[in-house]
Amino acid sequence: MSEPKNVFQPTRQHIKTGNLSFLTKQVAEWQKLTKLIQPLLPQPEVWQVVCYQYGILTITGENQAMISQLGYLQKQYISQLSQISELRDLQKLQVRLRNQQQETETHKQSNKTTKSIEAATADMLQNAASFVSDPKLSQALLRLASNKK
């Protein structure tokens, strides 16, 4: 068996940007894997990949019965999923329960943060941007102060 390859090796670029690009790449890869595995797993559950590292695929679902089924039939699903080129090193499935209520609260909170910020906060962000030597960070602070996306 070949040694599992870690797709998400940090590079010097990630250190400079505070790992934002690294995390963005991870999330994009997990979303891609989610679309690939969804039709192969028990239905009608909505599965979500939350991690794939060292041959271990961690996914979440909202239905405990479906999660249990996937756990009991793990070997069969691993043999199916490892046919996908991105998951050829798959050795183990970890299945976790995703809390529906927590997810909706998170969405509500993120919707609240999209509202405009107070003028005092915008002034503080603009002042902070003038003191920062990193031009990208300065631009990000100015963009945040102006509430543009």
Rank of each mutant, 00 (worst) to 15 (best):
I59R: 01
Y72G: 01
E62L: 10
Q91C: 02
Q100R: 15
K115T: 15
T58S: 05
K75C: 05
Q91P: 02
R88I: 06
Q80H: 06
Q109E: 02
Q100D: 14
Q94Y: 12
G71S: 07
T106E: 00
L97E: 13
Q109A: 10
T58M: 02
N63M: 03
L73V: 04
L87Y: 07
Q91R: 11
K108R: 13
L81P: 01
Q83N: 06
Q76E: 11
Q91M: 05
M66Y: 09
R96E: 11
S85H: 03
S68P: 05
Q64P: 11
D89M: 06
Q100W: 14
T113P: 13
A65E: 10
T58N: 00
S82F: 05
V95N: 00
Q94M: 15
S110D: 09
T113A: 08
V95G: 01
E86G: 09
K112E: 12
G71A: 09
Q64L: 09
L90Q: 07
K112A: 10
I59F: 02
Q94C: 09
T114C: 05
Q101I: 10
L93F: 02
R98F: 03
E62C: 07
R96Q: 14
T113I: 05
I67D: 00
A65H: 03
L87C: 11
Q101N: 10
Q101P: 13
L90P: 06
M66E: 14
Q91G: 07
Y72M: 08
T114L: 14
L73Y: 12
N63R: 03
E105T: 07
I67L: 07
K108E: 12
M66V: 03
T58H: 03
I84W: 08
T114K: 15
K112S: 08
S110E: 13
L97R: 13
T60N: 02
N111R: 15
D89E: 15
T113V: 07
Y77F: 14
M66R: 11
L70W: 07
